[in-house]
Lab assay of single mutants.
Amino acid sequence: PEEVRRLVEELYRKGVSPEQVKKILKKQGIDEREIEKVLRRIG
């Protein structure tokens, strides 16, 4: 979803590592598979 992409990109631009991005967003209840999809697209 758009909102997940925005959150991931925001953290990524701040220099947060992909592993940390995953941890942070998982705590917020976001599906890990969604996060990984976005990270793959960015990375």
Rank of each mutant, 00 (worst) to 15 (best):
V16Q: 09
V38Q: 13
D31A: 07
V38D: 02
Q28C: 03
K37Y: 03
P1Y: 14
L39Y: 01
L25P: 00
V4G: 01
E2F: 06
P18Q: 11
R33T: 12
R13I: 10
G43S: 14
V21E: 00
L11K: 01
V4D: 01
E10I: 07
K37A: 11
L7F: 06
E34F: 05
L39M: 12
L25I: 02
R6V: 09
L11N: 01
K26R: 12
E9D: 08
E32A: 07
S17K: 10
E19Q: 10
K37Q: 09
V21W: 02
G29V: 01
E19W: 03
I42M: 13
E3A: 11
E3D: 12
R5S: 10
I42V: 09
V4I: 14
K27G: 14
E9M: 08
E19L: 07
I30R: 03
K23V: 14
V16L: 10
R41K: 15
I24P: 00
R41E: 15
R33K: 13
G15C: 03
L25W: 00
G29W: 02
E19F: 03
G15K: 05
K22F: 07
K26G: 13
I42A: 07
L11P: 00
L7V: 07
K27W: 07
Q28D: 07
R13N: 14
E36N: 06
E9G: 03
I24D: 05
E3G: 09
G43L: 03
R33S: 12
R33W: 08
R13Q: 13
L25V: 01
E3S: 11
S17G: 10
K22S: 06
K37C: 04
E36R: 01
L25E: 00
I30K: 02
E9C: 08
K26D: 04
V21Y: 01
G15N: 06
I24A: 06
K27I: 11
K23I: 15
K22A: 08
E2I: 10
G43D: 15
I35P: 00
R5F: 11
K14R: 12
V38E: 15
V8L: 04
Q28G: 06
P18G: 09
R5P: 03
R6D: 06
L39I: 15
E19R: 08
P18V: 13
R13W: 12
K37S: 07
R41Q: 15
D31N: 08
I30A: 03
Y12F: 14
E19I: 08
R6T: 08
D31Y: 02
L7P: 00
E9Q: 06
P1Q: 13
L11I: 03
R13C: 09
L11V: 01
L25F: 01
P18T: 14
P1N: 14
R13F: 13
R41T: 15
P1E: 15
I30L: 12
Y12N: 06
L25R: 00
I35S: 01
K27S: 14
E36T: 03
R41W: 11
R5K: 12
I24R: 05
